[in-house]
Structure formats: structure tokens, C-alpha cells
Amino acid sequence: MVTKDEAVTAADNFLKNVAYPDRADSVVMLPDTAKNFPYAWTVRFDFQEHIDTGEFAQAPFSSLIVVPHDGSPAHFAPTYPPPAEYLALQAAGNWPPK
């Protein structure tokens, strides 16, 4: 089982080394947003430029990272279905849909 701190660290590593290596210095993790689900933790992040300016164009397209409890790689949550539904489908073994 992954702890909250481990989930935040895994999400941070994913963002800085895989998703946004060119913007690694701009990634700001939001550990207080971490939520535990049966399948995974979810953790949100933002970019420093968005925090500083409030400009929508500076915000990440998707700010929700999923960190599975089984040690699978962290990844972005899909934009559909809603996160709780996606995580329930994963937990039940029904993702991807057939």
C-alpha cells in the first residue's frame, strides 16, 4: 500500500521526469489535495506561473495525477469519466471499458 507521502512523491517524479521535464521547476505539488481511493491515491498539482498570475492559459490542462496502490506508474486521470468513477472502474477491473 502506498502512503500519502509516497503518492505525492511519485506524482512529483512523474510530472518532473515524464510529463513536464521542460517545466520541472514550475511544478507545484498540492499535497493537501491528496485523496485515497481503493485503487489509488489522487494528487493535484499546478504550475507556478498559474499560481502567480491566475491566468487560465498558464494552468495545466489536467491537474489530477493518479498513483496506483499496486506500484504501477503514476499517470494522468482521464478527462472522462469523472475521477471517482474512473477509480471505481479500475478497482473493479472494468477499465478500460470493453
Results as ranks from 00 to 15, higher is better:
Trp41Met: 00
Pro97Leu: 10
Ser72Ile: 10
Asp25Asn: 14
Asn13Trp: 04
Ala84Pro: 04
Phe37Ala: 12
Thr33Pro: 13
Tyr39Lys: 08
Gln48Asn: 09
Pro68His: 13
Pro78Arg: 12
Val28Phe: 04
Phe76Val: 07
Asn94Pro: 00
Ala11Ile: 01
Ser26Trp: 04
Asp5Val: 10
Arg44Met: 14
Ala77Trp: 03
Leu15Gly: 02
Glu49Gln: 12
Phe61Asp: 13
Ser63Phe: 07
Pro68Gly: 13
Pro21Cys: 14
Thr9Lys: 13
Asn13Phe: 04
Lys35Met: 09
Val67Ala: 13
Glu55Gln: 11
Pro60Val: 03
Val67Gly: 07
Asp70Met: 08
Asp70Phe: 03
Val2Ser: 06
Val66Ile: 15
Tyr86Ser: 06
Lys98Phe: 02
Val8Asn: 01
Pro81Phe: 11
Asp52Phe: 00
Phe76Arg: 06
Gly93Tyr: 09
Ser63Cys: 10
Pro60Gln: 04
Tyr20Leu: 13
Tyr86Val: 05
Met29Asn: 05
Gly71Gln: 12
Phe76Thr: 03
Ala24Ile: 10
Val27Leu: 05
Val8Pro: 00
Asn36Leu: 04
Leu64Lys: 11
His50Trp: 09
Asp32Ala: 12
Val66Asn: 10
Thr79Pro: 00
Val66Asp: 10
Ala91Thr: 07
Asp12Val: 00
Gly93Glu: 10
Trp95Ile: 00
Thr79Lys: 12
Pro81Asn: 12
Trp95Cys: 03
Ala24Phe: 11
Asn13Thr: 10
Val66Arg: 07
Ser63Asp: 14
Phe37Lys: 04
Gln90Asn: 07
Pro97Ala: 09
Thr33Glu: 15
Leu64Gln: 09
Ala84Ser: 15
Asp32Met: 07
Phe14Asn: 01
Asp5Cys: 03
Ala7Met: 03
Ser72Arg: 14
Ile65Gly: 08
Ala19Val: 04
Leu64Gly: 02
Ala24Cys: 12
Ala11Met: 03
Lys98Val: 05
Pro96Glu: 04
Glu55Trp: 07
Ala10Gln: 08
Trp95Asn: 04
Lys35Arg: 15
Asp46Phe: 06
Lys35Gly: 01
Ala77Ser: 15
Asp12Thr: 04
